[in-house]
Nucleic acid binder design. Structure first.
Lengths: 170, 170
DNA sequence: CGATAAAGTTCTATTTTAGAACTGTCAATA
DNA sequence: TATTGACAGTTCTAAAATAGAACTTTATCG
């Protein structure tokens, strides 16, 4: 695959993977949500090489997820702040953290707890349907091609056919 | 960083990134949720090299996200099915798709639409607080160290200090 | 003046990935 | 019987990405 054109794929997941789908970007964004903002802070707290950090920050700025803002003149220094587009990544981060909390914790328990300021309680994130408010599961969702779709590939059609015939299922 | 020990980091996000944080794994999982199950189907629909596909499938099986199940004898052939642990990745996939729907669509519109079978309507996923049911935003959440935490790094303490003093904020 | 800080850039060695061909087993076809 | 094809990988080499460390630039501090 051509990673440089992934963002043009007719798939919202692939397009998002173009932005956050490498090993470092999500960790960088985690730091952003923990109020890390400066080059050397990212470098020290993540242990990423300076070369890659410079590269990934540039990419995130290019995609409009971070903004590079001067915080002092002479010498000019910059920090990296989440844009609204970046803040909107929060549900992705939270759902990833939540899956890790459920499936990847060791005997010591969760590394972090989250408090909801609105209600004052420790919480877990729950994904619900915007229309009826019920929690979402994979099996309760049916996928339709949208206006930006291309026709489904022969491979997927074949798999769908097999799935229709078979009673065995996940 | 040592990617082979990422799953031991005291951070649920890092541990999850160890499972799904490379360029291919999320795309492979997308196909799983679209009922793709067999080696050649993955290969044909993704254009991934066979070498990497074999490698990633092995990794996902090792982490318990997929199960490798024989679907015929002589010659023995296998297919890859999502486990419950894998099905639990659905909120991650959906939140990624949703972000792409909002921020990465072109003029043609969304490539896919999702129907909730329970209520019969096209929906968007919404992430809410498990305790009060209100939608979650980054600013309304406060983070606490949990039982599995290590003491916060000096870099993060410094950034938090700066954040406390500063009025400028995202 | 020398030391330190921030935000990168440059360099080489190592690792990962891409792209294509190859392997082994069996079933179906000519 | 010989041939073809499907499936699920493995092996190979060239190209690209990454790690780890040193270096650069501008400016302040003691």
């Amino acid at each position: 695959m051509k990673w440089d054109t992934l963002e043009e794929e007719p798939c919202s997941l692939a397009r998002t993977v173009a932005v956050i789908g490498d090993r470092w970007s999500l960790l960088i964004l985690r730091e952003c949500f923990l109020r890390i903002r400066r080059f050397d802070e990212f470098q020290a707290s993540l242990g990423i090489t300076r070369h890659l950090l410079a590269d990934r920050l540039k990419k995130l700025v290019r995609f409009g997820v971070l903004r590079r803002i001067p915080y002092q003149e002479s010498p000019k220094r910059y920090e990296y702040i989440l844009t609204q587009k970046g803040l909107d990544l929060y549900p992705i981060i939270m759902s990833i953290v939540h899956w890790g909390n459920i499936h990847m914790v060791d005997s010591r328990g969760r590394p972090m707890l989250h408090e909801h300021k609105n209600c004052g309680k420790m919480f877990d994130p729950v994904m619900v349907c915007s229309e009826c408010g019920e929690p979402l599961t994979a099996k309760a969702v049916h996928v339709h091609p949208g206006p930006g779709a291309r026709q489904s590939s022969p491979v997927q059609a074949k798999a769908q056919e097999r799935a229709r015939k078979s009673f065995a299922s996940t």
